[in-house]
Design a protein around this nucleic acid. Structure first.
Length: 509
RNA sequence: GCGGGUGUAGCUUAGUGGUAAAGCUCUAGCCUUCCAAGCUAGCUAUGUGGGUUCGAUUCCCAUCACCCGCUCCA
């Protein structure tokens, strides 16, 4: 065994450093703008990465839109697809709460290194203009305020001060202010906007009136098209609208490879149903989504299902379950892969109010019944799913030349099989090429002729190709080939004319 | 955004105030009947920008990217 000659240090455990290196070395994922030094929070998918991502995306689309699951009543449910624009009318984001609601100015304290929302701080300014100003959290107790007045103002009574809000205080006065956790005045920076959404300007003339936003989530486009879909598709409640696409967030700190990036891809379903049926459908979708992740290669015991406590729920949500995966960087914890949320009818209500469009659904069996359907939203990260598949598949194995292999399911593997003539001689290369041309009609396969067979097996192990078909002298004698299985490295001979069927069966398994 | 660390070829490492070395990968050829084998040849690097200096990969500053910890993650 030549493992000790392998220069790609044979890892013994799943380590992000090794996974990132493999992704770059074999062409799964590169830093965006690599030759310019990269760009924080952006990543490019290489030749194999795009195949892997497409496989996951296509499976989701097939499971949702092409062959949606059978519902609790034994009948197939209805889901239709959508591909809405990344940029929508900015009012959309006012209705959703993304503009105005969440982009509060923040101040940093240079001394305590803490960050505060400017509108959460109150400021006491001395009426006689003498001495420092004091900033507090607006929740600060009378005791705390008295304590700090004692410390910084020799116990002057609060009545000597005027109470104001930090975000209403002129920046020119900031040098006099002692921050909530500071000892010296003048440590607070001026309030800054932290824009979670990327913005741009639609049209050549850039002006605030042309300001538009790149969507921070794909679901909004679904709500905006709720009525269009109803009016054009003959769907009836309960039904779903599915969408896959890019979303953009100005995350404060992109981290952990592609896990938290500023441009990413989501797979979202909005399931519209009657309020009374929410509990049934919620449970239904939790089960369906579990089956999905299991079927693409994430064992359920590697996932964690977090039922968000009521107190932590977003204001519009009655229940949320996060599907979390134990990534190598998660430590003993887990990080979110998908969230299933009951959003009530918050979104349709908001968009109906802001757009003035009538979005109510009329019960087709009783046209006196009109209502805004409730929504259950299974929202999965496609980019995060790709990362989870990579991390799950990454398998160090000191007993093979590559030192590591990617244990993708055949259906997710970027390459399903490699066709390898044992030597580059014509009597091997020619039949191999014929087999390759036949198989590529139905499968993503590689033909690799150059170099010795061991190197080629090793390469395929590293990119997670589940099967290698090898053509040798015996192939020409009896029309059989060797199948080499990735995980076991075991070989068997099968008939050349059975190869296509062999692969077809394995893809379904 | 803060603090700490790192940055030499695709990877792993070496080295020096005087113009960068090696192994593996990769490419081409030869050879090879099953696991990175052998022979020959070849491509490829001091993250970026300044400064000091006759000369900087080396020293200094800034910046960018990545890693760890905090913060953030509606």
């Amino acid at each position: 065994m030549a493992a000790e000659k392998n220069t790609h240090a044979a890892p013994t455990a799943k380590d992000m450093k090794d996974i990132v290196a493999l992704c770059k070395r074999r062409g799964f994922i590169f830093a965006a703008s690599d030759i310019y030094g990269g760009l924080n929070g952006f990543w490019d998918y290489g030749p194999l990465g795009v195949e892997l991502k497409n496989n996951l995306r296509d499976r989701w689309w097939r499971d949702m839109v092409v062959t949606p699951p059978i519902g609790p009543d034994g009948q197939p449910i209805e889901i239709v697809g959508l591909d809405s624009a990344i940029i929508q009318n900015p009012k959309c984001w006012e209705a959703s709460g993304h503009v105005g609601g969440f982009n509060d100015p923040m101040v940093d304290c240079k001394e305590s290194k803490k960050r505060y929302r400017a509108d959460h701080l109150i400021v006491l300014s001395p009426n006689d203009g003498q001495g420092p100003w004091l900033a507090f959290d607006k929740e600060a107790s009378a005791d705390e305020i008295a304590q700090r007045l004692k410390k910084h103002a020799r116990g002057r009574p609060e009545s000597d001060y005027t109470r104001g809000q930090l975000d209403k205080t002129p920046v020119a006065d900031f040098p006099k202010i002692i921050g909530p956790d500071a000892k010296e005045p003048g440590t607070l920076t001026e309030p800054r906007q932290f824009n979670m959404m990327f913005h741009s300007y639609a049209g050549a003339a850039a002006g605030e009136e042309n300001k538009v936003y790149l969507r921070p989530e794909t679901c909004a486009g679904i709500f905006l098209n709720f009525k269009n879909v109803l009016d054009s598709s003959r769907v009836r409640v309960p039904f779903g609208i599915a969408q896959i696409g890019k979303a953009f967030r100005n995350e404060v700190t992109p981290r952990n490879f592609i896990f938290r990036s500023r441009e990413f891809e989501q797979m979202e379903l909005e399931w519209f149903c009657h309020q009374d049926d929410v509990p049934m459908w919620f449970d239904f979708w939790v089960e369906q989504r579990k089956k999905f992740w299991e079927s693409v290669g994430l064992p359920l015991n590697h996932l964690h299902f977090y039922d968000t406590p009521k107190a932590d729920l977003a204001h519009y949500s009655a229940r949320t379950i996060d599907f979390e995966y134990q990534f190598p960087f998660s430590g003993d914890g887990f990080d979110e892969l998908e969230g299933i949320a009951h959003r009530g009818n918050f979104d349709l209500t908001q968009h109906q109010e802001f757009s003035k469009a009538k979005l109510e659904y009329m019960d087709p069996t009783d046209n006196t019944k009109r209502y805004l359907p409730h929504v259950i939203e299974p929202s999965a990260g496609l980019s995060r799913g790709v990362l989870a598949l990579l991390c799950e598949a990454y398998t160090p194995d000191p007993n093979r030349p590559s030192g590591v292999y990617l244990n993708f399911t055949p259906a997710m593997a970027p390459k399903k099989a490699a066709i390898l003539p044992l030597t580059a001689k014509e009597e091997h290369a020619a039949p191999a090429t014929n087999l390759y041309l036949e198989l590529r009609e139905d499968f993503a396969v590689d033909l690799d002729i150059k170099q010795n067979i061991g190197k080629r097996y090793a390469r395929q192990d590293e990119i997670g190709t589940p099967f290698c078909f090898t053509i040798d002298d015996q192939t020409n004698a009896d029309q059989t080939v060797t199948v080499r299985e990735r995980n076991t490295m075991a070989q068997e001979r099968i008939s050349l004319d059975k190869v296509h069927e062999y692969l077809r069966v394995k893809m379904k398994a």
